[in-house]
Measured scan of single mutants.
Amino acid sequence: ENVVSAPMPGKVLRVLVRVGDRVRVGQGLLVLEAMKMENEIPSPRDGVVKRILVKEGEIVDTGQPKIELG
């Protein structure tokens, strides 16, 4: 899985990584606000952040790609 998608609709509060960052499985990639709760979205695997496809403040839909890992 190279693309991390939104598990639920919500607002991107914070992006916790930058392009080029090495990430580990379970590491937080971003914080999504859904139903007035903050949810940290974890990396599904070890890898390197290739692209960030969302911006802080953006509203995302379920299944929308957010971060691409290499």
Rank of each mutant, 00 (worst) to 15 (best):
E1M: 14
E1P: 13
E1L: 14
E1Q: 13
N2P: 07
V3W: 15
V4C: 09
V4Y: 04
V4L: 08
V4G: 04
V4N: 03
S5W: 12
A6V: 08
A6S: 13
A6I: 09
A6R: 03
A6L: 07
P7H: 11
P7F: 10
M8K: 06
M8V: 08
M8I: 09
M8Y: 15
M8G: 09
P9I: 09
P9H: 11
P9K: 12
P9C: 11
P9S: 12
P9D: 06
G10T: 05
G10C: 08
K11D: 01
K11T: 10
V12A: 00
V12E: 01
V12L: 03
L13A: 05
L13T: 08
L13R: 04
L13G: 02
L13V: 12
L13F: 03
R14K: 12
R14P: 02
R14Q: 07
R14M: 07
R14I: 08
V15T: 02
V15C: 06
V15D: 02
V15H: 03
V15A: 00
V15G: 01
V15N: 01
L16H: 04
L16G: 00
L16T: 04
L16S: 03
L16Q: 03
L16C: 11
V17E: 01
V17R: 00
V17P: 00
V17S: 00
R18D: 08
R18M: 11
R18I: 09
R18F: 08
R18E: 11
R18T: 10
V19S: 04
V19I: 10
V19H: 04
V19P: 08
V19L: 08
G20V: 02
G20T: 03
G20W: 05
D21W: 10
D21H: 06
D21K: 02
R22S: 11
R22V: 13
R22G: 07
V23T: 02
V23K: 01
V23A: 01
V23W: 03
V23C: 06
R24V: 13
R24M: 11
R24D: 06
V25Y: 12
V25T: 12
V25S: 10
V25G: 07
G26E: 03
G26I: 03
G26F: 05
G26T: 03
Q27L: 05
Q27Y: 04
Q27S: 06
G28Y: 09
G28V: 15
L29Y: 01
L29P: 00
L29S: 00
L29D: 00
L29H: 00
L29Q: 00
L30R: 00
L30G: 00
L30A: 04
L30V: 11
L30P: 00
L30D: 00
L30H: 00
L32P: 00
L32H: 01
L32C: 09
L32Y: 09
E33S: 09
E33M: 12
E33P: 00
A34G: 09
A34H: 14
M35T: 08
M35A: 11
M35D: 14
K36S: 14
K36C: 15
K36P: 04
K36A: 13
K36H: 14
K36L: 12
M37P: 03
M37Y: 08
M37E: 11
E38M: 11
E38S: 09
E38P: 09
E38W: 10
E38D: 07
N39K: 13
N39W: 15
N39R: 14
N39S: 11
E40Q: 10
E40V: 15
I41E: 02
I41V: 09
I41G: 02
I41S: 01
P42S: 11
P42R: 14
P42I: 13
S43N: 01
P44E: 05
P44A: 04
P44V: 04
R45G: 06
D46S: 10
D46L: 04
G47M: 03
G47L: 03
G47D: 03
V48I: 13
V48F: 13
V48A: 04
V48Q: 07
V48D: 03
V49S: 00
K50N: 09
K50H: 10
R51D: 06
R51C: 10
R51T: 10
R51P: 03
R51I: 07
R51S: 10
R51G: 07
R51L: 09
I52L: 06
I52A: 02
I52N: 01
I52E: 01
I52W: 03
L53R: 04
L53P: 02
L53K: 03
L53N: 05
L53G: 04
L53Q: 03
V54Y: 02
V54E: 02
V54T: 05
V54P: 00
K55G: 08
K55H: 11
K55Q: 11
K55D: 07
K55A: 11
K55C: 11
E56N: 07
E56S: 08
E56F: 06
G57R: 02
G57C: 07
G57E: 04
G57N: 07
G57K: 03
E58I: 04
E58M: 10
E58R: 02
E58C: 07
E58L: 04
E58A: 08
I59C: 14
I59Q: 11
I59R: 11
I59G: 04
V60N: 01
V60D: 02
V60M: 04
V60Q: 03
V60E: 03
D61H: 14
D61L: 13
D61W: 13
T62M: 13
T62R: 13
T62S: 13
T62I: 13
T62Q: 13
G63K: 07
G63A: 08
G63T: 06
G63E: 06
G63Y: 08
Q64T: 11
Q64G: 05
Q64W: 08
P65S: 08
K66L: 15
K66G: 15
K66Q: 15
K66T: 15
I67M: 09
I67H: 03
I67R: 01
I67C: 06
I67G: 01
E68W: 13
E68V: 15
E68C: 14
E68T: 10
E68Y: 13
E68P: 03
L69I: 13
L69Y: 04
L69A: 03
L69N: 01
G70Q: 13
